[in-house]
Computed example of a mutant assay.
Amino acid sequence: MEIQEFDGRYIEYNFSLLQTKIELQEIAVAEQEEIERYDNIIDNLRAIATYNSEASRGRALKARVRFQERLEARRIKAPFVDIKQPTIRFGIENEIEDTFVVNVTNYRVMFDELLLDNVNFEIKSTDKVAIIGPNGTGKTTLLRDIFKNNHASIKIHADVKVAYLSQNQGEVLKDSNTILEEFIEAGFKTYDEVRSYLSNYGFEGEIVNQKIASLSGGEKNMLQLAKVAASKANVLLFDEPTSIWTPIHK
């Protein structure tokens, strides 16, 4: 048995384990795909060798089988770290039929220079949309303006409730709040209700009494996710989800 030290709190350790689990799962999938590919090659070589008795065919088959055995020997046998994963569910309070929920017309963004000009698009309730472009081209500003819904060029359907997961955690979470206070302000009725809900996201025990400012970046991201999921919004805006939510698969 090997003992390893972890410099941090228990919840940070759990987040570290979760990331390790995801990485091992991805490696295991890649290894399985490679093994299946070699299974097909070996089956084809056996079929050819049945009708062709050339020595070279037999040597090729034996070489492939030996390589396949090495792949099997080195593969990760049990890639799943035994930890409690977060239970993430995005409930919807008011489902909207197939209609336009966001309408952007002649949208323009300018700071030191013009970033976006004459931007026009519509998003339906059934759409999944990615806004793709280089850094510094106004993507985050556009998402914020949709979330705040105070821009003349942006119209939001009256029945839409928007939730926003931000790169800047302070836009969604208030550092001066404790975790419990943050969720009471978000609409939870009692501290017990908050504790029960947050246990699904790995926040248990006395950590819920801590100030949000004291949390790690990963903890704040998970807390953002928990808050957005609890909002029961019917339109979700994710800013840079592939970089912010790397440790989270669901």
Rank of each mutant, 00 (worst) to 15 (best):
R37H: 08
E69T: 11
K62W: 03
N52R: 09
F67N: 11
E36G: 04
A28N: 06
A55W: 08
Q25G: 12
Q19K: 15
I42D: 01
Q32M: 09
L18S: 01
L61V: 01
E33D: 14
Q68V: 03
R46W: 05
L18R: 07
F15S: 10
R37Y: 08
A55C: 05
R57P: 00
N40P: 03
R70I: 14
Q19V: 03
N44M: 13
T20C: 04
V65Q: 06
A47P: 03
R57M: 14
F15R: 09
Q68G: 05
E33W: 04
F67D: 09
K62N: 12
N44I: 13
I35W: 02
Y13F: 15
A30I: 06
S53F: 08
L18Q: 05
K21G: 03
A60T: 09
L61T: 06
I35R: 04
R46G: 07
E54P: 01
A63E: 14
N44T: 14
A47Q: 14
I35A: 04
E36V: 11
E34S: 09
T20S: 08
F67S: 08
I42K: 02
I27H: 04
S56T: 13
E69H: 09
I42S: 02
S56G: 08
G58R: 12
E36A: 13
N40C: 07
A47R: 14
D43L: 15
E33G: 04
S16I: 02
D39S: 08
K21S: 09
K21L: 03
G58P: 02
D39K: 13
I41M: 07
R37C: 01
E54V: 05
N40F: 11
I48Q: 13
N14W: 00
D39P: 01
E26P: 03
N52H: 07
S53L: 12
A30C: 03
F15V: 11
L71P: 02
S56Y: 07
E26A: 11
I22Q: 04
L61G: 00
L24G: 01
S16F: 12
V29P: 01
D43H: 14
F15G: 06
Q32Y: 06
A47V: 11
R64V: 04
R57F: 09
E54H: 09
L45E: 07
Q19N: 12
N52A: 06
R37T: 06
A47H: 11
A55E: 14
L24Y: 05
L45D: 02
A60P: 02
N40G: 12
